[in-house]
Computed example of a mutant assay.
Amino acid sequence: MVRIDAGGWDAVLAPQDGGGLTALRFRGQDILVPTPAGERLGGPFGAFWMIPWANRLDGGRLGAHRLPVNRVADGTAIHGLSRDRPWQVEHATPDRAVLAQSIVAGPYRYAARLEHGATGEGFALDLAVTNTGEAPLPFGAGWHPWFVRPPGTWLSFRAAMRFTHDARCLPVAAAPCTGLDGDEAAFLGLDTHFAGWDGVARMAWPGIGLTLAAEGALATNLQVYAPAERAVLCVEPSSHVPDAPNRPGPARHGPMRVLAPGEILTGRIILSAECSHLPKGGA
């Protein structure tokens, strides 16, 4: 495990578990649902990265290629390749950590770099993915956090389009929208994709407010998941629509990006928090 503890932020990274976060707190308050001891990321806790695609590919289809179907129940390849593979620690200090990964799997050859840092702006996550293969391929990325959802949670963001989806949560059609702005009545039960996102989402819980600001490839699309049976809220910046390679209609609102050999996909997420009151001893 790698720990960052600076600027009021306390984060625990798991390089061997897909480079994800097993915990994230601000001034002692949980932002992410803490990962239970001994559990691997992917359940309703922590946060993980989705690379080189986000969400689902129907049948694992990527043009002429077939990726392993790891969600057998709905016949999809879900959440990419990086989350199931370890990362190497290139740098680790109390306020900054850099992880690196090199992947050779199926048609993909890529190098990924993740930088996490507690800065004056907040808690920042920087991603860079380079196509190290010999042929152009579609690439994408996303971040899948499991935020806490105590009573009184509020979610607000702007977007231009909201998708309907089938029983497997694959996009069907998009309709104009303004985004979301409300409590659980507005988002409970969603597993829904939004396009034309302006890159900013705000969450509020009793005593604390969080702003998620995305840049680059991660600032265009957003997946929101709020299951009724679990007190979690997933607000997932993504670079493309789910199953974009197989759905040209929906993909107009967020295609994967074809990277030539040597080209790089980059994105940034900055989390900033404000407390209406500080824990005892807070400065």
Results as ranks from 00 to 15, higher is better:
125 L>F: 13
194 F>W: 04
111 A>I: 01
156 S>G: 10
154 W>N: 10
138 P>D: 08
136 P>A: 14
176 P>Y: 03
195 A>Y: 11
197 W>G: 09
204 A>K: 13
119 T>G: 14
165 H>A: 15
206 P>S: 09
183 D>I: 05
139 F>S: 14
101 Q>Y: 02
139 F>P: 05
189 G>S: 07
172 V>E: 15
205 W>F: 13
94 P>T: 02
211 T>Q: 06
150 P>F: 10
105 A>V: 09
213 A>E: 14
100 A>F: 02
210 L>D: 06
153 T>N: 05
131 N>H: 05
126 D>N: 10
141 A>Q: 10
86 P>L: 01
154 W>D: 08
113 R>Y: 06
87 W>K: 04
211 T>A: 08
191 D>E: 14
164 T>V: 05
87 W>E: 07
217 A>C: 14
155 L>T: 09
132 T>P: 04
121 E>F: 15
118 A>I: 08
134 E>K: 07
169 C>F: 04
160 A>K: 06
92 A>R: 01
87 W>V: 05
176 P>L: 07
96 R>L: 02
196 G>S: 07
165 H>D: 15
104 V>P: 08
181 D>R: 07
94 P>G: 00
206 P>H: 01
96 R>G: 00
150 P>C: 07
158 R>H: 12
201 A>K: 03
216 G>T: 02
85 R>I: 12
162 R>G: 13
169 C>I: 00
204 A>W: 00
